[in-house]
Design a protein around this nucleic acid. Sequence first.
RNA 1: GCGGCCGUGAUGGAAUAGGCGAGACAUGCGAGCCUUAGAAGCUCGUGGGCGAUAGCCCGUGUGGGUUCGAAUCCCACCGGCCGCACCA
Length: 959
Amino acid sequence: MSETTTAAEAAAPHRYTAALAADIEARWQDFWDEHGTYEAPNPSGDLAGDPQLVAKPKKFIMDMFPYPSGAGLHVGHPLGYIATDVYARFQRMTGHNVLHTLGFDAFGLPAEQYAVQTGTHPRVSTEANIVNMKAQLRRLGLGHDQRRSVETIDPAYYKWTQWIFLQIFNSWYDADARKARPIDELVAQFESGERETPDGRAWADLSALERANVLGEYRLAYASDAPVNWCPGLGTVLANEEVTAEGRSERGNFPVFKAKLRQWNMRITAYADRLLEDLDGLDWPEAIKLQQRNWIGRSEGARVDFPVGDQRITVFTTRQDTLFGATYVVLAPEHELVSGPDSIVPDAWPEGTHDVWTGGYATPAEAVVAYRKQAAAKSDVERQAEAKDKTGVFTGAYATNPVSGERVPVFIADYVLMGYGTGAIMAVPAHDSRDFAFARAFELPMRCVVEPSDDRGTDPSTWDDAFSSYDAKIVNSSDDTISLDGLGVTEAKAKITEWLAAQGIGEGTVNFRLRDWLFSRQRYWGEPFPIVYDEDGVAHALPESMLPLELPEVEDYSPRTFDPDDADTSPETPLSRNEEWVNVDLDLGDGKGVRRYRRETNTMPNWAGSCWYELRYLDPNNDEKLVDPTVEQYWMGPREGQPHGGVDLYVGGAEHAVLHLLYARFWSKVLFDLGHISSAEPFHKLYNQGMIQAFVYRDKRGIAVPAAEVEERDGAYYYQGEKVSRVLGKMGKSLKNAVTPDEICQEYGADTLRLYEMAMGPLDVSRPWDTRAVVGQYRLLQRLWRNVVDEATGEVTVADVEPDEDTLRALHKAIDGVRQDMAGLRFNTAIAKITELNNHLTKAGGSVPRSVAERLVLLVAPLAPHIGEELWRKLGHTDSVVHEDFPEADSAYVVDETVTCVVQIKGKVKARLEVSPSISDADLEAAALAEPAVVAALDGAGIRKVIVRAPKLVNIVPA
RNA sequence: GCGGCCGUGAUGGAAUAGGCGAGACAUGCGAGCCUUAGAAGCUCGUGGGCGAUAGCCCGUGUGGGUUCGAAUCCCACCGGCCGCACCA
């Protein structure tokens, strides 16, 4: 902007310019802070307040809180924050007590990696980033209750994260009651003998370690030695949810290997059915519900035992109706029946074993060992890549098909996964394409037991692929005791399941794809576990009085990372290097006095802090309780239409569809079961905002060039004279196309930025940023300003006169439309309606009637709060506009006195009539047929049919 | 491969339940006013084609269908985005 005063500026010193906007915005932001304008009162406690406001219906409106990354914000980040802010402001103006704030999710990999890069302590860099981000956000005029902003790295916050962990650790899932219960109640059952110990010995006879091991099988948080996702490149283990389909880490894209390590887990699988069922009561996008359903992956089927000598292989199948077609059995390579003491692998190949089955090895044991080794060395990436070619090896053992009585060979193959079902399948090659491919490769027999509905015939050896259909009939499936022939799939399943149960060799079961949640990480920058181990290795919970267990200061907080491709490595936790902190003498208050313990040196994953932060917003200073029950009930409790309670609106990106949202739901359910909260679901309504995309310009070498310096000529793009290509991509520093909110605020003001982001399109759709187009919303605000204020004098120009009929109609239609659009989060069309009204006033000329100007300002206020406050004040009001009532439409002016009725002949409009909205069909038809243009167009032709949709339309079909 | 979503002017996008000439609102572009000039601001125009005007024809990815009437419903195809991916 020019420093010199131009003629235009001299003529209009009070024009709404960026400079004036900056002045207005800074003043009102200070005003809001001073007056606590956005503070929402609790019904009780230290944040209690105005009882009249508390008495109003509540709205709890939240964003997914951000990581305070060092890169700062670009204009894509605040999209959701602006949307929730507009919505929150609208709700305040329509009679609600609105809780709206924003905290920071500051533990975890990104913060730590940034700290390692910059060589500063994560706490220092994180705190600095938070300060920086808060300043950027403040400039946008977001109406947050600052008293409630929390940071997950604050010991006063993570004290309660640790406390919740202990609640989960000290609970077990009672499958009969379908809820979590305190572990003490389980111990009591063991003590009384009501529940038997695994080996039948009395509880009193068990050692401390044995008891701990028994309870470990029940606890909802437990440590176990299980195959986990080990990522040498990151130096930590990862949850299944953090590993991509390609078998790489979601962060950093490093290879991930399976390794057997002792790690903490959360028994989220205990809640699989409730996590699935309760989705029905939530107001979430169907796509997200679907993703959660798929992730939980419920499938109904049966377990069936296949005898092998005096052992048995239990398989899981969803197609028990095809049991007669099971011609071989496959175990996962990791299955214990081929490795453990109960191995079924014989010493020598049975007589006449097919050459392709042996893999060329002299004995089954050699073959099995070699294959297991080969499978273990493969990363998931390689396993995926080879998915089409089935590999495996014969174990040398034969099982018996329990219905056909046939001897069926037992194989191991990596297409069967240890982690799903029982890690063993019955193979029905005729009706499963994977089994079909394997059977082809190993020349195994196939048996058709589902009658094909096409013309392929019943000999599978002539087929190109397996046949599978739920509409076909079962055939070729009978023996002395049971016949499924002629039954449909559903009936056959029911019959065989019942039969298996009666024989005691199987039962109907439900299997879930969901696995337990791996909860420990080998990181510094996370919550320490409030767990210590005694000399026997028994884990003990720290008493509540020792919380928070603060993260110790260490010399070296960087993780030990390895060659990303070296699977033969194991993690090292940064906290373990600090012997002084690790080895401690404590009195746990369990009557055993002071003893020496060793601390858990893993830390919690970055999801921990975000699993419950909505609860801390409610009662951020409470150091006695997680959250006061009265306060929690007020903001989160179930109510009409919200059977499980929860936040009224939660806005964030769809990338959290399963991770954060599933974990948070799980923690809510545990806390609910234990009676700490009244809401069984954290987020009643979820909304995914779209992404703001940006153009990426690349030169010949494919390197991104600064987008701001690219010039457009004749539809082509040039950077420093060189032609560059343009594609739509993400916005960010690395692609050199980031636009910051600060520069837009500088150029136009925060209100313009807010308006532009909301006007770009529907909130849930991704769209490209276009800096050139921002000026459109700036012009709207200038025109709005000019409709109220004289640019030359700064005086208010509104007139105390009655608006004319046209203006009243424009006003009330706008009010009606904007109300509906705001309630439905359709801010783009709300802005269009406001623009129309404002344009109407501009065109009308002269002074705007005060009553219209005031209501226009109220309509704009949620979207552009600073100019809203300023104009409201200029119009003579002394209170903030934030708590004013949103205008209400007078229906008399919303419905037009006359409506335009179109008269069509064969769907083509031939005439238009101005008619009353209440005209009857008969009158309208008569009027239409009498219309000269219609008579002319019909040209004497007869009428076959007349469709009348009063008052809008008449359609005449000539003979 | 399976599942889901989506294709509207130069651009972002409008269009309550199939029904008021599709294209609201905005950007861009064009013309004019203002200005020494530019920028800003203001006014008007802006889907394509034909026509001086009135007006006519064609238009919501492509092709078919249902209907008095389709951007909206159905089928097939083309293109794009997202999720899952040997889950038995």
